[in-house]
Amino acid sequence: MPEQFTPERADQLPGPDEILSMSGLEFMQKVLAGELPMAPIGAALNYRLQSVAAAEVIFRGTPGFDHMNPSGTIHGGWYGTLLDSAMACAVMTCVPKGSVYTTLEYKVNIIRPIPSGVTVDAIGTVEHAGRSTGVATGRIVGVEDGKLYATGSTTCIIMTPK
């Protein structure tokens, strides 16, 4: 499988016509296969796509010093961004060709701090995907220790541009 890649410029991201030409599942599979670029934020926050299936997406990441708040723990924004990516991309796998989606809202419950350098999986699972909304839940789980670090939920809007 080709290596996933991070674009260096905005013009390397897929345009609206390319995005609308495939289903959300096809799009996510192409990102995983390295045929389309990862979201640039993944490089900044040290996470990447791990697996893609219909109604489930997993991102794997390792927070470090650059992701800490002033008190020396991993910033809540890291948890939130990782869970938003996993949950919203899970919804994306249910979006039909010709449609797009975006997050309307999400909620995060941090259960325990992730130690710096610990690798975790963020697992997004679709609970509902209809014509206009998608609902998903997420979990951040330690790869080595199996601990549950955070949970989340999201609602996404699904739209067909005219």
Rank of each mutant, 00 (worst) to 15 (best):
M92R: 13
I111F: 11
D66F: 11
T151N: 10
V57R: 07
F5G: 02
S153F: 02
R139Q: 15
I114L: 12
G130V: 06
A122H: 05
V91Q: 05
T73L: 15
N69L: 07
P2G: 13
A136P: 04
P113C: 11
L20A: 10
L82F: 15
P40L: 08
H128W: 07
F59P: 02
P96M: 10
A136Q: 00
N109V: 13
G134L: 06
S153R: 12
P2T: 13
I114H: 09
Y101K: 01
V100T: 14
G134R: 02
L83G: 05
T133A: 03
D66G: 12
V91R: 01
L36V: 05
E105G: 01
K147D: 08
T93S: 12
V143W: 07
T151A: 09
S51I: 04
L49M: 13
T81Y: 02
T81C: 15
S153I: 03
I157F: 02
G64V: 06
P16G: 06
P2V: 10
V52N: 03
M68Q: 12
Y106C: 04
P14V: 08
S71C: 11
V143K: 03
S132A: 06
Q12H: 13
A88S: 15
Q4M: 14
P2H: 10
Y149Q: 01
L45R: 09
A53E: 15
E35I: 01
A55I: 01
G61K: 11
T102V: 02
V126M: 05
G34P: 01
T102W: 02
A86I: 00
L20V: 05
L36A: 10
I140V: 14
G134W: 06
A39Q: 12
S85H: 11
M68V: 04
I140N: 07
T137G: 06
G72Y: 11
